[in-house]
């Protein structure tokens, strides 16, 4: 008994190994229903019929709807029911808050120029991450843009013609690919698959309109 009582701690360790659910769901249901279930900030947006954005986490296969809390210049602040947030800069992922990933901010002027010009070629992007020890660490990625095929994307309002722009990025120890579906006229990103960071991996976005 003595022996076992002391090893309870490490036994529980044993049971605890493997994956850990940090939250049952990262996001609420696809269409927000009862505003009473959500945080106050989100409830206000539900009541105000704020614009929506569908997002999905590629690795965890979870997804949901975010609502636009604020639009300021090129930056859109999208809020989840639980109070997490992604910030898009002209549709490109700039930062995340509350999803566990430490993407504090990005410098995206060069890649945005490629997307909005529908131009092939190389560019640099900079991501600043919290590293788990609360230090902000900036990483630089070299990226190659390739213009892809033209296709129609089905939005709620109907099909929209888009040009696919693929961005393959690498640093010394990381690599990822982003895909943007861009309207050829307004050069607007209406759908995307973008890498947020090593913790949550890639996420997909699609405007709801």
């Amino acid at each position: 008994m003595k022996r076992w009582s002391l090893t309870v701690l490490l036994s529980s360790v044993l049971l605890g190994c493997g994956t850990v659910d940090v939250e049952d769901t990262l996001l609420g249901p696809l269409i927000p229903s009862d505003s009473g279930e959500y945080g106050e900030r989100f409830s206000v947006l539900v009541q105000a019929n704020a614009p929506a954005l569908q997002i999905g986490f590629v690795e965890s296969q979870e997804g949901g709807t975010l609502l636009l809390e604020r639009r300021e210049g090129a930056f859109d602040y999208w809020l989840s029911p639980e109070g997490a947030q992604i910030v898009l800069q002209n549709g490109m992922l700039h930062s995340t808050r509350g999803f566990g990933e430490g993407l504090l901010a990005s410098e995206l002027s060069a890649p945005l120029a490629h997307v909005h010009g529908l131009r092939n070629g190389y560019s640099d992007r900079f991501h600043t991450y919290l590293d788990g020890n609360d230090r902000a660490v900036t990483r630089t990625y070299r990226c190659l843009f390739t213009r892809g095929e033209t296709s129609n994307i089905a939005l709620h309002s109907g099909p929209v013609q888009t040009v696919q722009m693929r961005e393959n990025c690498r640093s010394l120890d990381q690599e990822f690919s982003n895909i943007y579906w861009v309207t050829p006229g307004a050069r607007r990103i209406v759908q995307s698959r973008q890498w947020a960071g090593p913790y949550i991996g890639a996420l997909s976005t699609r405007v709801v309109e």
Binding site: L14, E23, E72, G98, E101, G102, L130, D131, D134
Partner: peptide
């Protein structure tokens, strides 16, 4: 049974707390 931990690495580096209010 052994468990090796890295204290300098939070499980969720960015945290699960709600986003700050936009300026």
């Amino acid at each position: 049974y052994s468990l090796i931990l890295n204290p300098a690495k939070r499980r969720a580096p960015g945290g699960q707390d709600a986003a700050p209010i936009p300026l």
